[in-house]
């Protein structure tokens, strides 16, 4: 009914409300009362606000405590959402974080790098075209070792 009085309805919506008002006495009474209130408020002129009104109001307002300020800030939805997300992230990180995980990965990467180098040396020693048999003898781990990666360990 307020939307009708404020001319916010489309013509079809306005017509359907008017049709209802014709058939429903309760709503009709309510509408008349509302129309009267609208007429009265329409007769009122705009009040002039004194320029120093705000200056006179602010000293009479209670000063807000830190907690009060915090609470009023916390009541904002975006603050609640941010705090909630941070709490959830902290909670999950406690369960997902494994001590030493990064360290193990670092050590593993170093090991693989070192092992790749040894592998390349061994393979070049075993399968290089020049002097395959000599190289193979040198790579036998059963030979008394001179260095870790090139000798047969069982050869003396």
């Amino acid at each position: 009914m307020t939307a009708l009085l404020d001319d916010e309805l489309s013509s079809s919506e306005a017509n359907s409300v008017k049709d209802h008002l014709h058939s429903c006495s309760t709503c009709q009474q309510e509408f008349q009362s509302l129309s009267f209130a609208y007429q009265l408020t329409g007769q009122l002129g705009e009040l002039e606000v004194a320029p120093d009104l705000w200056d006179r109001i602010t000293p009479r307002l209670p000063s807000r405590s830190f907690f009060g300020q915090f609470w009023s800030l916390f009541r904002r939805p975006w603050v609640q959402a941010t705090v909630g997300a941070l709490v959830l992230a902290a909670f999950l990180s406690v369960f997902l974080w494994v001590p030493g995980q990064d360290q193990a990965e670092k050590e593993f990467a170093e090991f693989i790098q070192q092992r790749e180098r040894i592998s390349a040396e061994t393979q070049s020693l075993l399968f290089s075209n020049a002097g395959v048999e000599v190289n193979r003898a040198r790579s036998n781990p059963f030979v008394k070792p001179v260095s870790f990666s090139t000798r047969n360990p069982f050869q003396e």
């Binding site: 040894i118 592998s119 061994t122 075993l126 781990p141 059963f142 047969n152 360990p153 069982f154």
Partner: peptide, 14 residues
């Protein structure tokens, strides 16, 4: 020496 042998064979097989 046995471990070293397996390492060399691993490289050869790889």
């Amino acid at each position: 020496k046995l471990v070293e042998e397996i390492r060399i064979l691993t490289d050869a097989l790889l």
